[in-house]
Design a binder for these strands. Structure first.
Length: 512
RNA sequence: GGCGGCGUAGCUCAGUUGGUCAGAGCACACGGCUCAUAAUCGUGGGGUCGCGGGUUCGAGUCCCGCCGCCGCUACCA
């Protein structure tokens, strides 16, 4: 049996969960669900990143201990994922003891291997921020946050010798052309490496909200440095080597383009430095963008809790799921091409909802149930082995599987929807509602039901609840998740003789 | 400034190594149907593929320049 390990980035607890987070997480969830459907042993990891100066500051501002503050925001992420029907296998928090142990073990190894050295970190420092800035970040030579003058400071830090890995990284990219996808993102990472790498300061003494450095207790690790290691922590790095070896390095990291450098340059180098293989698969997705045009006040009110200028990070997932339903939002997020940026708008959601969900899928379910009710006494007949839909279903099954496998849910769903179109078309050309009950009617309606069964199976990673409901309405026992692709997605799996029920519209058409 | 990406029908997007590559879906128009959530099915209009050059028998597809967006530029989740 195959194994499939997929991760999202761990989300920083200073942010509230927003649609950008949901985009990554829903995609990872759907892909994980697909692999479970394929019968693989799946480990889907997400979580929260809870260290660093910003968390400590925010906690102080709220008069809370850092951990209490982190508890609160971490819980909001869990709630958001629950609201989006995310079936993760593990939710890691970087404040957990297991993570501290793994980080210390990992970085001690790097230290012992000679890739961490003490050095002087110099920069422009704002005392009130307790943070360094580059000259470009300053506004009029002053701190961008406080507007006050910054001072030149230096502190003794430990540095990771990233610069020592340039050649090995280039070699690794050469030997693993598919490791970073899509190719455009791979090129960006390569460009960064070829541009020259410097050593990285990885510890702090100015603040203490972090993982203690095992060989020098005056320091804690810089937040990014501990964060990346979560992927190793969760599969037993440093505590259960057997388990770790089972899942590593054939991981699939899904991440947004803004953190490409950390994942595609730092992280592989860190792994090399610690003496483990770099992650085998890094898939970098683009952003959802608001086109910057025609954002009506209505839309603003609907999407954002409060915003003058609406950004994707202002939109909370629950605002959307309350409005459209969980599966509709999951579906919409999954129809955005994953590797590149794509437009995101309220009107776009409405349009897709009406076209794909209400008109095509929802209406097909309704019309089939009604005609089965009137012409077959509500008992679904068996499909016709020679139905024209059989060939479409074959094609769609193969295409959808290939698309899910290459992290292209939008293509997988596009293919799946062709079977819906085929079924609507077959009904139109056969007109079973005009025919007398008999074998001919049975063949058409049985085939339509079979199409719905296959669609419910293939689309279940995207819309688990809706597909389970379709499954139930056509009389199937259990849920699509109990089945396996590709075998159960082959034409002829609908047994016939099952009670078909009508039910309310799955996706009531929107009039806005 | 440097590095990288993008600019294809009204909208959202496809278009490997240059030769049915001018496409899909939505929207729109017309026709059919009425089982269905005024749904569905069929047909059609519509783009000098950002602009200007160049290479080539032939270029959205390669090269140069320009215009317009955008990301990264190192310790920012």
């Amino acid at each position: 049996m195959g194994r499939f390990f997929i991760t999202t980035p761990i989300y920083y607890v200073n942010d509230a969960p927003h649609v950008g987070h949901a985009y990554t997480t829903v995609n990872a969830d759907a892909i994980a669900r697909w692999h479970r459907l394929c019968g693989e042993e799946v480990f889907f990891l997400t979580g929260t990143d809870e260290h660093g100066a910003k968390v400590a500051e925010s906690a102080a501002e709220h008069d809370m201990a850092p951990l209490a503050w982190a508890d609160r925001t971490s819980a909001r992420f869990k709630a958001a994922w629950s609201g989006l029907d995310i079936a993760y296998d593990d939710f890691i928090r970087t404040t957990e003891p297991r993570h501290h142990r793994a980080v210390q073990s990992f970085l001690q190894r790097v230290y012992d291997n000679g890739y961490i050295e003490k050095g002087l970190y110099q920069g422009l420092y704002c005392v009130r921020c307790e943070d360094y800035y580059t000259e470009e970040q300053l506004i009029g030579g002053n701190c961008p946050v406080h507007g006050t003058p910054v001072s030149f400071m230096e502190e003794e830090n430990y540095f990771f010798r990233l610069d020592a890995f340039a050649d090995r990284l280039l070699e690794w990219y050469e030997e693993h052309p598919e490791a970073v996808r899509p190719a455009t993102k791979r090129n960006e990472a390569l460009g960064f490496i070829k541009g020259g790498l410097q050593r990285i300061s990885i510890t702090r003494t100015s603040m203490h909200w972090g993982v203690p450095v095992p060989w020098d207790d005056a320091h804690v690790f810089y937040v990014w440095y501990d964060a990346l290691i979560n992927y190793a922590t969760a599969i037993g790095y440093g505590s259960d080597e057997e388990r770790f070896a089972r899942w590593w390095p054939s991981v699939h990291h899904l991440l947004g383009k803004e953190i490409l450098r950390f994942h595609c340059v730092w992280w592989p180098a860190m792994c090399m430095a610690a003496g483990i293989e770099p992650p085998a698969n890094l898939f970098v997705h683009g952003w959802l963008l608001f086109g910057g045009e025609k954002l009506s006040k209505t839309m603003l009110q609907r999407l954002a809790r409060s915003a003058e200028e609406l950004a994707i990070t202002d939109v909370a997932p629950d605002v959307l799921t309350d409005d459209f339903g969980v599966d509709a939002i999951r579906y919409h997020l999954l129809r955005a091409p994953l590797g590149s940026d794509s437009e995101f708008s309220y009107d776009g959601i409405v349009a897709r909802y009406n076209a794909d969900l209400a008109n095509n899928l929802g209406n097909l379910v309704a019309r089939v149930a009604t005609v089965v009710g009137s012409k077959c006494g509500g008992i679904g007949p068996a499909p016709d082995p020679r139905s024209p839909l059989a060939a479409i279903a074959d094609e769609v099954r193969v295409e959808a599987a290939a698309a899910w496998a290459r992290f292209a849910p939008h293509d997988a769903l596009g293919a799946t929807w062709r079977l819906i179109g085929g079924a609507n078309s077959l009904l139109e050309s056969s007109e079973p509602w005009k025919m007398e009950p008999g074998p001919e009617v049975d063949a058409v309606l049985g085939s339509a039901l079979e199409a719905l069964r296959i669609v419910a199976l293939l689309a279940s990673p995207a819309m688990p609840a809706t597909c389970a409901e379709i499954w139930r309405r056509i009389g199937m026992a259990g849920t699509p998740e109990d089945r396996r692709v590709p075998d159960d997605a082959r034409w002829g799996g609908y047994p016939g003789g099952l009670a078909v029920s009508k039910g309310d519209p799955l996706f009531p058409r929107r009039r806005d």
